[in-house]
Design a protein around this nucleic acid. Structure first.
Length: 301
DNA sequence: AACATGGGCAACCGCTATCCG
DNA sequence: ACGGATAGCGGTTGCCCATGT
């Protein structure tokens, strides 16, 4: 027997929201907040809607700081880089793009950016092979398989297809633990009072940042450090300055989008680090040296 | 002008994670 | 420690509109 539904779907309104409903929800949330309970909110607000529907409407459409459309090339680059690095974890990707929602980013990727990427990729494949397309190239699966070590879909909700490019599949548990420890230190830098100069960064990261509590066994990447730090770990790759293979859709085919990387460093760093000093420190660091064999954290350690 | 087709986007569905008693 | 309730997430669906025939 399954769980009871969150609301009686036969008695609540579904489908597109009317302006009146939008106004009811907007004014209620602005006056009272969500109260931490979306299920009870529709009744309090006088809406005949499911709580989940209200939450989605607010988060994706009614929030005051939402931006719709008009994606910049900078945002394109961030999305592509992050997708390459962490896969379809839209909430994480969206969190790096102020004013964008996961749904919006997901739709944008699925309807526009993905096609752009595939087109660029096939164009480059034709160039590289004198017109012969690589077998399987251009499909989502081949894109995934051709990507660099990817932490995509680290959660247990990963689909079978995602598993092919899952983080866990790419790195050994010991490597993950090692990376997680590094991340823990670096992550703390965002709140540190004064970061050291870049050249001292590696040795002193641990000193200006208290280590977080050890992760629960078997869940190092997936829980306490995963969501926040996985993408930070792959900053060089996110920027396209890591070790993408030349034929990679993002490292190669997406080269035009990833060009002008150096000038984008500051903007990107600002996206990744809430603390301006940490962003500055990262920007100033040397990101272009070759990656270590493990392919992990070469700019951060 | 009428119809078919495809793209874009909002909303829904079903699942996992997390919280809380 | 356990189980129920809720939040959050990613995949999918379906509607609307623009464009082509």
């Amino acid at each position: 027997m399954g769980r009871a539904p969150c609301c009686d779907k036969t008695s609540v309104k579904r489908g597109p929201w009317s302006p009146e409903e939008d106004e009811l929800l907007r004014s209620y949330v602005q006056n009272h907040g969500t109260g931490g309970n979306w299920i009870a909110l529709p009744h309090k607000a006088g809406l005949n809607r499911c709580g989940k529907s209200c939450r989605l409407r607010w988060l994706n459409y009614l929030r005051p700081d939402i931006k719709h459309g008009g994606y910049t090339e900078q945002e394109d680059r961030i999305i592509c880089s992050l997708y390459n690095s962490i896969g379809s974890r839209w909430s994480i990707i969206a969190s790096k793009l102020p004013g964008r929602t996961d749904n919006d980013v997901k739709n944008y990727w699925n309807t526009k950016l993905k096609k752009k990427a595939v087109a660029m990729h096939s164009q480059q494949q034709q160039h590289a092979s004198g017109g012969r397309a690589r077998r399987g190239a251009g499909t989502p699966q081949s894109q995934c398989a051709s990507m660099q070590p990817s932490p995509a879909s680290a959660s247990s909700a990963a689909s079978a297809g995602d598993a092919a490019c899952s983080f866990g599949a790419m790195y050994s548990p010991s490597t993950l633990q090692q990376a997680t420890a590094v991340l823990a230190r670096y992550d703390g830098a965002a709140t540190a009072p004064l970061p050291p100069p870049p050249q001292q960064q590696a040795s002193s990261l641990a000193e200006f940042s208290p280590a977080p509590p050890p992760p629960p066994a078997g869940s190092a990447i997936n829980s306490w450090a995963g969501g926040l730090a996985l993408d930070d770990m792959f900053l060089p790759e996110l920027l396209g300055i890591g070790d993408f293979p030349p034929g990679d859709i993002f490292g190669g085919g997406f080269a035009p989008l990833l060009q002008d990387r150096a000038s984008s460093l500051q903007e990107l760093a600002a996206c990744y680090f809430p603390n301006a000093q940490a962003a500055e420190m990262w920007t100033a660091a040397d990101h272009v040296k070759p990656p270590p064999p493990a392919g992990l954290c070469h700019s951060l350690t």
